[in-house]
Design a binder for these strands. Structure first.
Lengths: 143, 143
DNA sequence: GTAAAGCCTCCCCTGCACTGGAAGGTCAAG
DNA sequence: CTTGACCTTCCAGTGCAGGGGAGGCTTTAC
């Protein structure tokens, strides 16, 4: 099938499929005499895997590693479970960060309701944001 | 004071300070005859505000808006509290997303322990990641 | 026969907050 | 006089996952 049909069947855009090929998560397909890409059912399965792995939070680079491991050796399951574990740990950390940031914002917000807007001074720009570090701050959240 | 001293006093890098100036969150300072930037205490206060606002989760663009509002009108407190509210709502959404993703990963991980690594098939790359959408999937998390 | 849709490659753009490096000017100490 | 620290501007790149559009073939439908 041609790239447009593959896109329709996977819900991806044509651009994205070509990008995946260049990113190394989708093998280069056969070409028709015209130069058009010609995909088989394997491409469909592959793209389903890529989508599922993305949904599980893996990056394209990691997915590429898994695929390479698969092609150069045995089943990459151990690698995959290690990636899942690492992502789970990352998520735990990020969730904790965001939750703390959420609490800080709530504190600022509550405090703001009791402040006089006219009392803002120029240098500090706005006294709703105290320039003395609020309790519980751990530096800017990485995004 | 020169830029290096300001950097030392704020804990930022010289590069970052110049970047902030270009990003519009720090006004252009006076210049010495040599062309060197020459900062006063206002710059220190301003950078403290920028850091505090970043800690509260605002982007540089938003901080720039707050500063512009401050310069072109009265106190920007209402603007700031609106931003804080928007960020709080965003955080709630992102925390929920990440928590759901975390639960999905935990499910995959638990399932993986009961699977046979040799049973991976080629098209699916690795059966630890099921290509049929797992229950509770809501699409890739935005990062 | 012609128009429209589809495909090709190529290169640049997005957001976010910086970071690195090149090529050169300035200033104080030894 | 030279060394070295400090400063200047400008350009480019990072990570991540694509998106936009130009300019030009190919295929399909009428």
């Amino acid at each position: 099938m041609r790239i447009g049909e593959l896109a329709a069947q996977t819900g991806l855009t044509v651009k994205t499929i070509r990008f995946y090929e260049q990113a190394g998560v989708l093998p280069e397909p056969a070409r028709r005499p015209s130069g058009y890409r010609d995909y088989d059912a394997g491409a469909l399965a592959r793209l389903r895997f890529v989508k599922a792995a993305q949904t599980a939070g893996l990056t394209l680079a990691e997915i590429g590693q898994v695929i390479t491991a698969r092609e150069h050796g045995g089943p990459p399951c151990r690698h995959v479970t290690a990636l899942l574990d690492a992502h789970a740990a990352n998520l735990d950390r990020r969730i904790a960060e965001l939750t703390a940031l959420r609490a800080d914002i709530r504190r600022l917000r509550d405090r703001a309701d009791g402040l006089d807007p006219a009392a803002c001074d120029d240098d500090a720009v706005c006294h709703v944001i105290p320039t003395t570090t609020p309790p519980g701050a751990r530096g800017p959240a990485r995004r």
